[in-house]
Design a protein around this nucleic acid. Structure first.
Lengths: 203, 203
DNA sequence: AATTTCAGCGTACAAGTGTAAGCTAAATGT
DNA sequence: ACATTTAGCTTACACTTGTACGCTGAAATT
């Protein structure tokens, strides 16, 4: 039983259909730049030319997808921090949360990873912006928790995010039984960074 | 004055032309999968269909490029180790060497970076293989120099390589005056990892 | 009730793609 | 000397692509 839709509602609905269709297309074998307008339209159940009623071109849609993916990542961080209690390890909790996210939203994470080194300078810098947000929020948290300078926290945070993202890239292609190994590995590596910064601090 | 060429010589020459043309095409805006056979042929100065006399398809050429890029990286490592003297810092020397390489062979490094998260599973695992070589050689070096277990050396090496490659990605898009800042940053981050592992060792 | 707006459609076209088929001429093999 | 091989070419075909143009019908506005 579908409710009567106003014109605006209907438009937003198909817009969302396009976005969902695009995310669905962006599997292991498709990037934003290799994704064709017609393919998206086919998947969204609209005529190719109808696409233009919602987005200027595929680039425009792509920026929307990157923004949305970045937003999901930031929301994820908040949920991860909420899961960190007094006696739970911050690193373990964060890694587990991200690994969960990656597995449940493979294509969302893939977009960020792929376009980060993709063929569009615009996408690259958009993803870099999102990752910078990610790094900054972690940095603030670290600075507050570990009582270190902002400069040091920034360095630590960035190193950690790079390590985690690389592990995420591995996890995307790995078998499920390998993912646990990857998660354990990255936890050690993050611990090394943390220990190293702590060691460096007094100097 | 060109020497008289045998048939085989001539063939190898145009094969190399194709490879060079492909690397030249793979700039900031092109990936292996978005690279067309005709475009390569145009750049190599041959007819499109002549391409098939040398490679099965673009995938075949792509694997060749990845192999070649990986080989260059391994040669780079050797030259970096040669530059490390008793009183020069191993981290500084390695980072400076890599940054130099990246700037002088942008497209070579770009291929590895891009196809590492690209749309072809075959390329992805080929690049991963090359990076694993890279990590393994560094790991052996670390294990020998820092007298730590192989397991620990592997973890440290991988973390370092991930950090360095991420910095390389940044450097590719950065202005020349920013590259120094990136290099300094990554040196600190690598030092943190090294310190952290050293700290962890006794435990 | 009459008018305007506009999401979505169908058609059409130029440009680019991979690659099959067959030819040519020169280097090689006999 | 003649026969074979083959790198490179031209032509050709079937597809896919982005997008311009104009239509339609229903919702929104007046």
């Amino acid at each position: 039983m579908t409710a009567k839709k106003s014109r605006e509602q209907q438009k937003q609905e198909t817009r969302q259909n396009i976005i969902n269709a695009a995310f669905a297309c962006l599997d292991a074998e498709k990037s934003l730049s290799s994704l064709s307008l017609r393919e998206i339209a086919r998947n969204a159940g609209i005529a190719p030319t109808s696409f233009y009623r919602h987005f200027k071109d595929v680039n425009d849609l792509g920026m929307t997808l990157v923004d949305e993916a970045g937003l999901m990542l930031r929301q994820l961080m908040r949920s991860a921090r909420r899961r960190i209690t007094k006696d739970s390890n911050a690193i373990d909790t964060s890694v587990d949360t991200l690994m969960e996210f990656i597995n449940e939203n493979k294509n969302v994470f893939r977009v960020l990873l792929r376009e980060h080194t993709g063929t569009s300078a615009e996408f690259r810098s958009a993803v870099r912006r999102e990752i910078q947000h990610f790094i900054k929020e972690l940095s603030d948290y670290i600075m507050h928790r570990q009582k270190i300078s902002q400069h040091l926290a920034d360095l630590q945070s960035e190193a950690m995010v790079m390590i985690v993202f690389s592990a995420g890239a591995q996890a995307l292609d790995a078998q499920p039984n390998q993912q646990f190994v990857i998660a354990e590995k990255v936890k050690y590596q993050l611990m090394f960074v943390q220990l190293g910064v702590r060691q460096f601090k007094p100097q």
